[in-house]
Design a protein around this nucleic acid. Structure first.
Lengths: 152, 152
DNA sequence: CTAGCTGCAAAACCTTTGCAGATAT
DNA sequence: ATATCTGCAAAGGTTTTGCAGCTAG
């Protein structure tokens, strides 16, 4: 099983943060959506179903608090808004298709020493998963090679 | 030697685009700054030294035209504005320090088969250099491990 | 001549911030 | 009781767009 809303709430409390209705609602949505890629606005829409009064700035401030407590990260897949990721789910990187936006989760163990060693050679330690690794998915790559292969 | 301004101008013309004073100035700055990481605003500042009247929207529109003609790409290192890269210089990827913003160029051959093969296993072709690979540079990684190691 | 380019101003987009009032502890 | 959190509204930084006039071809 995955992180439950109450785990998130407990962690908030443990970090000296207050448990408000808005935060409870946000934690619930986060726990329930652990396998999705939600933007702040997506999150607001879902939170509003339970607590209609919540404002987007509360979403951002709560995300900031949760991120500060190490409970989640935000990830940039490409242009546009960042998405939210529970920290338990940061065991994978993201492959992101620059053309169609498709993403593929890339288990960190699979990333293995290869990229890490390469980065280390330049004095870098590979960061978390804050930015995706961009490329083209199969479909878009094919389209890019022969754009009108099958066309009239 | 690297791409010259007149090469860029010729390529513009070859793509049916008009050669205006603003575009000439932009091409000159781009050619001269091929080894730098310029944002649109940086570019404007430099262009204005030769052509004071030029507007930021002209910069964006010209970059769009040049990008459409395959002459340059824009790259996102992290949060904040994108930077501009002549296509001839897209033979390297970027390592980007999430903390201090330092970047290191990573020759594509050095990226080697490792990451490429990993991406291929998921049906992806590693894209250009549109987004950087994020991590922590040596200094920031050290600081992150022992924040107050040397402090008072 | 006319399609395309320009400057200006205004908007779009995502995110952050100031403030006065409400709330958890 | 009081430090923290909230909603609202307004601003922030980057990029895009509408429009009327200018210019390259």
């Amino acid at each position: 099983m995955h992180v439950r809303a109450q785990d998130l709430e407990a962690a908030l409390a443990a970090n000296g943060l207050r448990l408000t209705a808005a935060r409870r609602a946000i934690c619930r949505v986060l726990a329930r959506s652990h396998d999705q890629h939600l933007t702040a606005t997506d999150l607001l829409r879902k939170v509003k179903r339970a607590s209609p009064g919540v404002n987007l700035s509360t979403i951002y401030r709560t995300l900031e608090a949760l991120e500060g407590a190490g409970l989640l990260h935000h990830v940039h897949l490409g242009h546009g808004p960042g998405i939210v990721h529970l920290s338990e789910a940061t065991d994978h990187h993201h492959l992101y298709c620059e053309r169609c936006g498709k993403t593929v989760d890339l288990p960190l163990p699979e990333l293995g020493p290869s990229l890490r060693r390469l980065a280390a050679r330049h004095g870098f330690r590979l960061g978390g998963v804050h930015f995706a690794i961009a490329g083209l998915c199969q479909a878009c790559a094919a389209e890019s090679d022969g754009p009108t292969k099958l066309g009239p």
